[in-house]
Simulated assay, not measured.
Amino acid sequence: MYPYLRYTKAIIDAVVANKKGKSLNFTQVSEVMIRCSLTDIDPMIEMNNGRVLTVYDIGRTDFIIRTGLGKQLFKHRWGMVVAGSTIQYRKRIRLFDKVTIKTQLVGIDERWLYLDHSMWVKGKPCSSVLLRTGVTEGGKVIETARVLEALGQTEWNKPTEPWIQAWIEGDKEHRWPPMG
């Protein structure tokens, strides 16, 4: 089941943080704390790999709200889509572990915003996911120039690092399963 209560709390916390002057700009890292709960675990009593991606939604939402992007999404009736991801797991997250989710913008091109999420327990990285995300209007991804203009950051630029660029290029070669 989707963690609606935890997600709602994250939205409220991000809105309150903005009101208290704790907003972020696109160069800053968002940090959200959660605790691994009974609804997060698998039979090995650790956070399920599918739940990891779901919990990253909480970090992404905090980042979106605190950078002001959420306000623009609402104002322009835009949406946000994840169009690609790659994840790495390094350390297990056990039941009741206190987890810090870090989110940062690591690249931008003419169409996509690239976000890096990571989960940390006791100062050690547990997993990391790189996401290709886009802002949508009417079901279609819009140019990032429009998004930056809405945010008043038309001069802002964040070229992708070489490892991200390699992932982008490699993804273009992705072979889709044959139909039939």
Rank of each mutant, 00 (worst) to 15 (best):
G139D: 11
E161Q: 09
K158L: 13
S127V: 09
P159F: 02
G152C: 09
P125I: 14
I142G: 06
T133L: 05
Q165H: 07
E143A: 15
G134V: 01
G138A: 07
P159L: 04
G152S: 06
L131M: 11
Q165E: 14
E137V: 03
V135H: 11
P162G: 02
E155A: 10
G134H: 07
E169F: 01
C126V: 02
G139E: 03
L130S: 08
R146G: 13
W167M: 11
P159Y: 03
V147I: 13
L131S: 08
T136W: 12
L130K: 10
L148I: 06
E173A: 13
W176N: 13
T144Y: 00
V147E: 03
V135L: 02
E161H: 06
A166V: 02
Q165I: 00
W176L: 14
Q153S: 07
N157G: 02
K140F: 09
G152K: 04
A150K: 03
A166R: 13
E173R: 12
L151Q: 02
G170V: 03
V135E: 00
W167T: 10
K172I: 00
T144V: 12
A145C: 10
R132T: 08
S128I: 07
D171N: 15
E169I: 10
W176R: 15
G139P: 01
E149I: 05
H174L: 14
P178D: 14
G134M: 08
R175S: 12
W167A: 10
I142Y: 05
Q153Y: 07
P178A: 13
L148P: 05
V129F: 07
V147P: 04
L131R: 07
S127Y: 08
L151P: 05
A150I: 03
G138M: 00
W167I: 01
R146A: 07
P159N: 02
E169Q: 11
T154C: 01
E149N: 13
N157T: 12
T133A: 14
E169P: 04
E161N: 06
L148Q: 08
K158Q: 13
V129I: 15
E161C: 03
E173T: 00
I142D: 07
G152E: 01
G170Q: 10
T136I: 10
S128Y: 01
E155H: 10
T160Y: 05
V141G: 06
I142L: 12
